[in-house]
């Protein structure tokens, strides 16, 4: 079993950075040649380059209702950062499952099959209503299941027909060459029993939160997947604060508001902690830290080599 290590690019983080309307003006005595054409996308590209150049395996873009659309961001970066997986999260309320699958196919064709599909957990009812999503609470799981069934169906079968509560297709399915690239791996998340059950049937990688009880959660996921006759990989959304020493990390942790479950410590300590999680069966880790450009370099240069060296010394599934 191999380990994939991704970096989180949160399009809503560091909101003033390279946002032309929000960046700090330079004093008048300095000639400022920046123009409106330089914007957030240059920053995203820089984070993506940092991620690629420091040997992460991919970039994970969580869905943000009040910021740039993640699939557009992933596509805009794809051709200038080669080799990096681009996992874009979006809600199942995006519209036609056929259309979403078709867009995924074009991405795969244009970017050598590097797309990942992460489906965002459903928002609260009022946030859904603001996006024109009128599906009731009780129907959300069914809508997600139908969305993924149809998206997979049109990609893998021809003709494909389906009549559900939310989606309907007749004589559908992609023809050659659109059906050639692999369907993007589907990432789902949530620590609840219901979330695990959906992943067991429709997901490829289930992303646990950093506060989940991993041994029992992974066991539950594996059991549910086996019952469905499938395999689902265990992944982890893991915030980290890693510094040269444990003391320095503890000092920084004390003055920062860290997300729950953040791993805090020296590069060696955090690498050891992550290796323990990998030994529990985690095969996909999405690391996150702020600010995301500087931390991509810090962790890419100092944490990843230590983690990989540990895993190489003690092969996981020997």
């Amino acid at each position: 079993m191999s380990l994939s290590i991704h970096w989180q690019l949160d399009v809503a983080a560091e909101p003033a950075r390279n946002e032309p309307s929000a960046r700090t003006a330079l004093p008048g005595l300095i000639r400022d040649l920046r123009h409106a054409g330089q914007n957030r996308f240059d920053y995203y590209a820089q984070v993506a380059q940092a991620t690629a150049q420091t040997a992460f395996d991919g970039l994970y873009l969580p869905f943000r209702a009040q910021a740039d659309e993640t699939r557009i961001v992933a596509s805009a970066l794809a051709r200038e950062v080669r080799g990096l997986a681009l996992i874009a999260e979006f809600p199942a309320s995006v519209g036609s499952a056929v259309y979403a699958a078709k867009q995924a196919v074009t991405f795969q064709r244009g970017a050598q099959g590097r797309l990942g599909w992460a489906i965002a957990p459903d928002d609260a009812p009022n946030a859904r209503a603001a996006r024109g999503d009128t599906v009731s609470d009780g129907d959300l799981t069914l809508r997600l299941a139908e969305f993924l069934t149809v998206a997979h169906g049109v990609h893998s079968q021809r003709p494909f027909s389906f009549k559900g509560d939310f989606f309907e297709v007749e004589q559908g399915g992609f023809a050659d060459p659109l059906n050639r690239p692999a369907f993007p791996p589907v990432y789902l998340r949530g620590d609840s029993e219901e979330a695990l059950a959906v992943s067991a049937r429709h997901g490829d990688i289930h992303l646990f939160s950093a506060t989940a009880d991993l041994p029992s959660s992974i066991a539950a996921l594996t059991a549910l997947a086996e019952k469905a006759g499938r395999q689902v990989a265990a992944g982890l959304l893991q915030p980290v604060l890693a510094r040269e020493s444990d003391e320095e990390a503890a000092q920084d942790a004390a003055r920062l508001a860290l997300p729950p479950g953040t791993l805090v410590g020296s590069f060696d300590t955090v690498a050891a902690d992550l290796a323990v999680l990998v030994a529990l069966g985690v095969s996909h880790i999405v690391l996150s830290a702020s600010p995301q450009l500087e931390e991509a370099y810090r962790l890419g240069q100092h944490l990843l080599p230590r983690l990989r060296a540990r895993l190489a010394a003690r092969p996981i599934a020997a």
Partner: peptide
């Protein structure tokens, strides 16, 4: 009809920015 209009507007605005 193929896209949720709010998601589509968000995507279109992002494309304008890109």
């Amino acid at each position: 009809g193929f896209g949720n209009p709010v998601q589509s507007a968000q995507a279109a605005a992002s494309l304008q920015r890109a």
